[in-house]
Design a protein around this nucleic acid. Sequence first.
DNA 1: ATTTTATTATGATATATATCATGTTTAATG
DNA 2: CATTAAACATGATATATATCATAATAAAAT
Lengths: 230, 230
Amino acid sequence: MPISGTDSCVSFDFDTTCFDLLTTEEMDLVNSHSVLVNYKKNEMVCKQGSFASHIMYIEKGLVKIYLEGNPKDLILTITPEKSLMGLPAIYEGNYTFLYSISTYTDTVVRLIDIQIFKQLLKQNPLFSYRIINILNENTAHSYSRFFSLTQKQLHGRLADILLCLSRKIFKSEAFELPLSRSDLSDLTSMSTESVIRIMKDFKDDRIIDISNKSITLLDIPRLERISAKG
Amino acid sequence: MPISGTDSCVSFDFDTTCFDLLTTEEMDLVNSHSVLVNYKKNEMVCKQGSFASHIMYIEKGLVKIYLEGNPKDLILTITPEKSLMGLPAIYEGNYTFLYSISTYTDTVVRLIDIQIFKQLLKQNPLFSYRIINILNENTAHSYSRFFSLTQKQLHGRLADILLCLSRKIFKSEAFELPLSRSDLSDLTSMSTESVIRIMKDFKDDRIIDISNKSITLLDIPRLERISAKG
DNA sequence: ATTTTATTATGATATATATCATGTTTAATG
DNA sequence: CATTAAACATGATATATATCATAATAAAAT
């Protein structure tokens, strides 16, 4: 799949520090127009199609951002802390969330009034410019996943996801996976049974090791080849 | 496929008038740092992975924006005139085009120096805000296509594309299609043969009429049902 | 602890869709 | 205008992947 330098990944590198570009007064404005909310594991943070009154910033935790479908959802990204979510709701003429978000672990989210956020964008061009950067990073990520899910077959898609979880979310070759096989299937657009079967294939081939919820990537170059081959 | 209010569409409504937000001096700056280039039919306007020295604005014509794959490309959008392209290249740390663009008809493109464009973003927050709107509209569009291609099967995907071409690009139930069946296959992520077969199915069922390159949508409600059913 | 429920697992079967082969029509080219 | 190439068309076959059925675990709840 020779698409120059794109390996599909569920999350991104970009250090979402945009608030450092605000003045003290602007930061005060954010603080006075935002609330911190604690979500438990498996709670919904926002619902696709509902009114978007706020932008969300994950202070702590892990969530999935997904499109609701019947019978299956499509997970767009797994998002760790220090990330902004709900930015696409900033669109004049559409005040609703494009996607749903729910938590994998206990999560702390800062909800920022969308009107204040818009005001900051309109008055602080450097802040605005940073947000454009973040949006573009998300777009790049989204396109590469789009490509992965539509052009690669099962093994390639699962390899992509495993590599990404390891690199971007858990930053280690071994990690405890809070996602179920069903989540992995929503992430790779395949059936849950296929996820299970391919995980077993990878295990039998000594590419990964699985015991319960622990996953270890044993042969990353091989996973990369599977990803590249499709 | 009950995804609230999303029918996948290849192009967008948003009237890409962002230049009206520039001052006379800023507009002069754009004019003095941009060039008009004429492209013939089937010419490449930009190449995925190459250095992005400019933002593109289609003054006239019709193009496809696509990710290159082997053996098949993935067309992200069909884009008509008065549209900005190449915005995702505005990302610090990545100065390359995310996608390739090529023309379907003779096309006039304004190439705007990306440094100037960035400068305008950094100095004119309303301009910047408008660009954020455009990016978000693109994202919404991209997600709904993402959903269509990963969750629906062939008939639903093709119905989506036909409805969109009619509504957004040609703004008529009857139109001359400059895209080949192979383009439709890159747009729907299916084989060319499948496109041909399903077009025939639709024709046999009196849902559409085809003669050579002319397409007429005869039964739009039925197409919508096919789209919704997946 | 014991029942209930969700998750993981695995084999058998069905099916959507791609691939291959081959022919026909349309468009491009010398 | 003839020739070549490209696009369209259609049937036969292959295959990737989903679906269904049925267990075995593991987790949650009473």
